[in-house]
Design a protein around this nucleic acid. Sequence first.
DNA 1: AGGGCGTTATCGAAATTTGGCAAACATTAA
DNA 2: TTAATGTTTGCCAAATTTCGATAACGCCCT
Lengths: 344, 344
Amino acid sequence: MHRQEQHAPHRCTVIANDANDQAGNLTDWEQEYDQIGAGRFCGRIDELNFGGLQLFNEHTGRSLLQRCKVWPDSFWFGFPSKRNETRINGQSVESSDVLCRPGSTEFELVTPESFDMLSIVVSKAKLQSHKASEDIDLKLLDAKNYPRLRLSLRTLQNFRYLLRRILQPTINKIDSDLHHDLLIMGLLELLAEEIPNKKVAPSYQHRKAVVERIKDYMATESIAPVTMTTLCEVGCASRRTLQYSFETILGISPMTFLRISRLNRAKRMLCQPSTSSVSEAASFNGFYHLSQFSSDYRQLFGELPSETFAKSHPANNSQLHSNALEPCVRTVPAFQHCLQRRGT
Amino acid sequence: MHRQEQHAPHRCTVIANDANDQAGNLTDWEQEYDQIGAGRFCGRIDELNFGGLQLFNEHTGRSLLQRCKVWPDSFWFGFPSKRNETRINGQSVESSDVLCRPGSTEFELVTPESFDMLSIVVSKAKLQSHKASEDIDLKLLDAKNYPRLRLSLRTLQNFRYLLRRILQPTINKIDSDLHHDLLIMGLLELLAEEIPNKKVAPSYQHRKAVVERIKDYMATESIAPVTMTTLCEVGCASRRTLQYSFETILGISPMTFLRISRLNRAKRMLCQPSTSSVSEAASFNGFYHLSQFSSDYRQLFGELPSETFAKSHPANNSQLHSNALEPCVRTVPAFQHCLQRRGT
DNA sequence: AGGGCGTTATCGAAATTTGGCAAACATTAA
DNA sequence: TTAATGTTTGCCAAATTTCGATAACGCCCT
């Protein structure tokens, strides 16, 4: 066996009560989580790191929208627990699908409530250095545009069992070399069998493009109150199509997406030390009614914005419930009713 | 009047027998022309340049696919002679439309046989420095995404008349300052009246995206024989939709587009000094049958590839009809029948 | 000249988009 | 708190668009 790891694998378990924290807890990943489901987040990562080969199980208690990017020159493989409720790049994951994305490439995951996913990341070098990988690496490169790989249920269940088994914390250290090799070989076996799942609805490209236009718009334009009509223009689609696009690609309605994105942005901002008050984070993200903001925020995250703020600003708790220090409220436009809480 | 030009305007007339030459004859433009219509090209440009204000009439004898980019910090306005047969960025031009694009922004023009277009380009600075331009510059910026501006026929005809009048070569020099101001004021009048023509078919975005994907593919992938099925995968559409997409956006069928693009690329290559033979240019662009290539080439451009080559390589005419010096023919795949001349 | 192959044209069926209307929900004012 | 108003979402039928199979056509090879 051509093994290159030098030390015993590094094992750790991290628990998070904030989606953003969880996003940062994965070693060598670049990612951002937006919480979609309502209620306080709870998550847990059990990771086993061989160096160049990373194995972990991630539990997320709330529905999430994840933007992920794995470390360079690697491949990620994901084995979600609830397939039919999971989406990768807007494509619904089917029962016999494994998720796969190369490193340095951003992809998007929509995950349901109370969700578990086994993941394995392996460096390209490690895959290629093994024998029995002759005609496979080419197929890998080809997999670039198909994030779902179809496998037989048998292979899939076997591999899942292997992953779970190796993740068991009761494993004795001497086995780690064996485990490393088992993982690589299992992966190669997987890849030999894999068939890209190209099945997408004919409308997929179009709807994806619509959602993408809205996202780009969100990223560039300041988050002033946006009406549905504006979104339609931006997305180059009718109301109903915009609706379908978001439901198909993200599983939520357009306005819900906007509100949730902005709430998550506000939460991130509240955690930054440079933010000096709740109202600053609120108004900066387009919430012009503090009370409404607090209530929406609390419904989504299960805690008040002031609580989040206090956690990241332990020094000056005194100004927690007042913005006397710096009243950062921006100019408030006349239409103060737009874009507040709506719908499901 | 706030005028800034220092000298008398520079006037010139250039005639071209090659679409590429014509593309380069416009001062300060970046463009590339692909000839679509069959027969020897003939074109003519009458230009009048005030510096920061450019006025010209362009005649093109053959149907063209133009990729254009105007000089930075400017706006271009175009008044085509045959509206219903002209497309800008895949949108059909209607009878009361004026074309408008900002500088540094690439756009695409499809023009019919025997076509004339009056054009005027003006620097943003020049427009804004004039009074009566207060609320107009904002609308201009807004015009970014709508290349067609709707005007009343009256205004349009008046302005066209003005342009033609000023282009007359019999004009006496003393009038040039007056003309300059007339043009600017006329433009401002136009812009005050303009309403962006947002009317596109619902399928426009989708079909444009399909064509764009094919173009990107053409640009990146080597031009090996491509089958229609591959194109469908690349474009994420069925055969029929691919067909519709090209007809709607470019007015030609997919394979015709491919062939014409490659023929035009071959012609460009033939004109480069670094190209050493006709067969090199042919095989490099996917033509593996020299005789077929010559015949196709001749039908499109009205001259033999060897003639084009000879024009740009006057020194060594001797090797015109032989490739003895450097037989650059590449490895020829088994399927030699793909992508040759077909259909209309 | 005829067969083989691939592209283009035709047409009915299926999928998608659209626009109108009603219901649900949020915001403002009383 | 309730009513008035405005916005978004859900539902449905009509119009448009896309799809898939088949036939016709043009080009290439024998």
